[in-house]
Computed example of a mutant assay.
Amino acid sequence: MGRSRAGRVADVHALAQAMPHVAEVSGGRGNAVYQVGGKSFVFFRTARPDAYDPVTGERYDDVIVIWVPDEQDKQALVEDPANPFFTTPHFDGHPSVLVRGSRVGELTLAQLREVVEDAWCSRASKRRVETWLAAQGRVSA
């Protein structure tokens, strides 16, 4: 298999939309929120005071929140310096990671696909996850 191209923000949308039983809803400011069974698994966040440039103090307006299966997965992603993922104190104890849209290109499309699929699996019902995994030729853990 060849090297996967760099991920794009448009890929986050496309990958989330491609998962089964997904509803795209608009957040309070028109930001995209992807849900399965009424539970968000990826959402595009509006500028908030907890995510900002440490030099200029400017709030990031391109933060994407992506759910993860558990705290261990979260820590693995945010502690790996090769990953653009981060978190803020606002998300302490929340099973999600943050990534700036401007840094999505630091991930390959394959890495981005894995993170979005894991996010969906962490929020979808057990039956939906098992059905989807079986259709992919994979088994649930």
Rank of each mutant, 00 (worst) to 15 (best):
I64L: 09
A82E: 14
E58W: 10
I66P: 13
D61T: 14
P84V: 02
E71A: 08
A76F: 00
R59A: 15
K74F: 05
Q75E: 12
T88D: 14
E71K: 06
R59K: 14
Y60I: 01
E71D: 12
T87W: 09
Q72H: 14
D80V: 01
Y60P: 10
P81E: 00
V63W: 08
V63L: 14
Q75K: 14
P81Y: 00
I66M: 15
P81G: 00
A76P: 03
Q72E: 15
P84A: 00
E71W: 06
V78N: 13
P81L: 00
E79C: 11
D62K: 02
Y60E: 11
N83Q: 13
V63K: 13
E79H: 13
I66H: 06
D70W: 05
E58C: 10
T88G: 08
T88I: 06
F85H: 04
V68K: 02
F86K: 03
V65W: 14
P84F: 01
V78K: 11
D73I: 13
I66L: 09
A76T: 04
V78R: 14
Y60R: 09
R59V: 14
T88C: 09
Q72F: 05
L77S: 01
W67P: 09
I66S: 05
D62I: 03
L77P: 03
A76G: 06
E71F: 11
E58Y: 15
D73Y: 10
K74W: 04
D61I: 10
Q72I: 07
I66K: 04
P69Q: 07
P69H: 14
T87E: 15
K74T: 05
E71V: 06
F86Q: 05
P84I: 01
P81K: 01
Q72V: 07
V63G: 12
I64C: 05
P84N: 00
D70R: 04
I64N: 07
F86T: 05
N83S: 08
T87V: 15
W67R: 11
D80Y: 00
N83C: 15
R59E: 09
D70E: 07
I64S: 07
A76C: 03
E79Y: 07
I66E: 04
D73P: 15
K74Q: 12
V65M: 09
D61H: 11
T88F: 10
Y60Q: 12
V63T: 13
V68F: 02
V68S: 02
D73F: 10
F85K: 02
T87C: 12
D73Q: 09
D62T: 03
P81C: 01
I66Q: 05
I66R: 04
F86H: 05
D80A: 01
Y60K: 13
W67L: 15
P81S: 01
N83W: 03
I64D: 07
Q75T: 08
W67S: 10
Q72K: 10
F86P: 04
D62Y: 02
D70F: 06
P84W: 01
V65S: 15
V78S: 12
E58A: 13
